[in-house]
């Protein structure tokens, strides 16, 4: 993958890519940790509570406390579990989430200033690997991400885990269809699979945003994104009220934490895709152009928390009904109409 990248963009060096990868890993991990804090705070505010307040000012150091707790907790592996798979599963979730982020433009291009020894003057690209099929790659990696919960549930010799794994397979497989089909209509309009082309297509301002042309696709993508990131209205994989904790029942410590980091990284990925594909993305010319996309990503992230505070869960049969009888026909009809419009 890196070979094609180096061929495509001559000014990008391997060092720059590695720096970018490290930045993504570090920053997104930190944001994922911070996301838990934001989620608690927002949910608390919406329930007129204060949320975490004790550790640090306004509870800001709660992340550190959580991290210490997760790292020092006993790492329990059940006796009858398939130990190797049990240990690998959370890594799959986290790894696929971060690999998906590698082809998403998250941070701006920048050049490391000259005064820093060794790395001075290195160009760090905005996308770690600028595949010209970026969107499909992200969707594919998120599809591969279903193995985390699936293997976790199947390896732990626990009936709740098996139910969680079955729900993983059903939910992710079904909603991948909706994600792909809903994003197909914008792809047809733009005629490219690259995030950069999407961004350039909508560069003319708010009026040219994809939302106005493809409102149905936008809504469908959001719904499917909620299902793919296992967020609340479709939080059936680890729904405490039904299956104790679903696939994560037997997990503790940092292995459980890795599921969490993966989930939050996936939330960020879905937010970034929604922001770039539907809400105009970033503005490469303006100096503060990157602030706009961060605001958009923040809006989608907040929307996920907001929805969690407001809406109830659905039943698994309702979830399948929604996917196959409502969303998928809508997506197909949307594609058909878009195709007719594009052709005519």
């Amino acid at each position: 993958m890196e070979t094609t990248l180096v061929e495509n963009l001559p000014q990008v060096t391997a060092v720059g890519v590695i720096i970018k990868a490290v930045i993504i890993l570090a920053v997104i991990s930190a944001i994922a940790g911070f996301g838990t804090f934001v989620e608690r705070k927002v949910l608390a505010f919406m329930q007129r509570r204060l949320g975490p307040m004790h550790v640090g000012p306004y509870g800001l150091l709660q992340i550190a406390a959580d991290g210490i707790k997760l790292f020092t907790k006993e790492d329990i592996i059940p006796q009858n579990a398939n130990k190797l798979i049990f240990m690998i599963a959370p890594v799959i979730t986290a790894a696929t989430a971060f690999i998906a982020l590698s082809s998403v433009p998250v941070f701006p291009d920048f050049i490391i200033p000259e005064f820093i020894p060794l790395l001075g003057g290195t160009f760090v690209p905005s996308i770690a690997s600028d595949l010209n099929i970026g969107i499909l790659f992200v969707l594919g990696m998120m599809a591969a991400g279903l193995y985390g919960p699936l293997l976790a549930g199947m390896s732990q010799a626990n009936k709740w885990g098996i139910i969680g794994a079955a729900r993983t397979a059903v939910q992710f497989l079904s909603y991948e269809v909706v994600t792909g089909l809903s994003i197909l209509a914008p792809i047809m309009l733009v005629g490219s699979l690259s995030f950069v082309d999407f961004n350039n297509y909508q560069a003319a301002g708010i009026g040219s945003w994809m939302v106005w042309q493809q409102p149905v696709a936008f809504v469908l993508f959001l719904i499917a994104g909620f299902a793919e990131t296992n967020r609340t209205p479709f939080d059936l994989l680890e729904h405490e009220a039904e299956v104790v904790s679903g696939y994560a029942t037997e997990y503790s410590g940092m292995r459980w934490g890795m599921f969490f980091i993966g989930e939050y990284a996936n939330m960020i990925t879905i937010s970034v895709i929604a922001a770039i594909v539907f809400l105009g993305g970033y503005d490469p010319e303006a100096t503060l152009g990157w602030l706009t996309i961060i605001l958009k990503i923040g809006f989608f992230f907040f929307l996920m928390l907001w929805v969690r505070a407001a809406w109830p869960h659905v039943r698994p049969d309702q979830l399948m009904w929604l996917c196959w009888k409502v969303l998928m026909p809508l997506a197909v009809v949307n594609i058909l109409i878009t195709a007719i419009v594009v052709m005519v």
Partner: peptide, 26 residues
């Protein structure tokens, strides 16, 4: 109805944050 739910939660959030309706007792 779904949007009513969203509206209620955001209204409560603003009430809690800016109108002193926070119900937490430390």
């Amino acid at each position: 109805e779904l949007f009513v739910g969203l509206w209620v939660t955001i209204r409560e959030m603003f009430n809690a944050l800016f109108r002193g309706n926070m119900h937490t007792v430390k």
